[in-house]
């Protein structure tokens, strides 16, 4: 894997999105929103440990952990009435959770533009997803330092 190629898990997600017609693409995003796991108690009870992502259109908070084996674990919180933001978080969770820190850091910053969502969701809304990824990578770097 190089900086120019996506991790197979992200590539599979991107292929799924690009491979279906427009309306199904929104349904797929909705499925990712629904599959976003809830916060574990250690974060749900300590929301101050979460980092806000103000670039998202609606409030989103995230936490990043790197375990002893160097694997990255991601935690998100976004309101149910913000399915688009939840969907973006769900994609990043499905694609990145459990990968090695080095693999996460190789994820291209413009990954969000490879899902064929620009015309359906609008570039402005997609900026929130790019911002989430940038903050995840920064936290991973900070943990490794």
């Amino acid at each position: 894997m190089t900086a120019d190629t996506l991790h197979p898990r992200l590539q599979e997600i991107a292929d799924d999105f690009v491979g279906v017609p427009d309306q199904d693409r929104l349904q797929l995003l909705l499925e990712f929103a629904q599959d976003l796991p809830p916060l574990p108690a250690r974060y749900a009870e300590h929301r101050d440990l979460l980092e806000p992502v103000p670039e998202c259109q609606t409030p989103l908070f995230l936490a990043v952990e790197v375990d002893e084996d160097g694997r990255v674990h991601l935690f998100f919180e976004a309101p149910q009435e913000s399915p688009t933001t939840r969907g973006f978080a769900g994609i990043l969770h499905a694609g990145l959770d459990g990968l090695d820190a080095a693999e996460v850091l190789l994820t291209p910053g413009e990954f969000s533009s490879q899902l064929g969502l620009q015309d359906l969701v609008s570039p402005l809304r997609l900026r929130g997803m790019a911002a989430m990824l940038a903050r995840i990578k920064r936290q991973v770097r900070d943990s490794a330092a």
């Binding site: 929104l26 349904q27 909705l30 259109q57 399915p83 688009t84 969907g87 969701v121 609008s122 809304r125």
Partner: peptide
């Protein structure tokens, strides 16, 4: 809506 997916929910 503001959220483009809310209608679908």
């Amino acid at each position: 809506d503001e959220d483009v997916l809310l209608y679908e929910t």
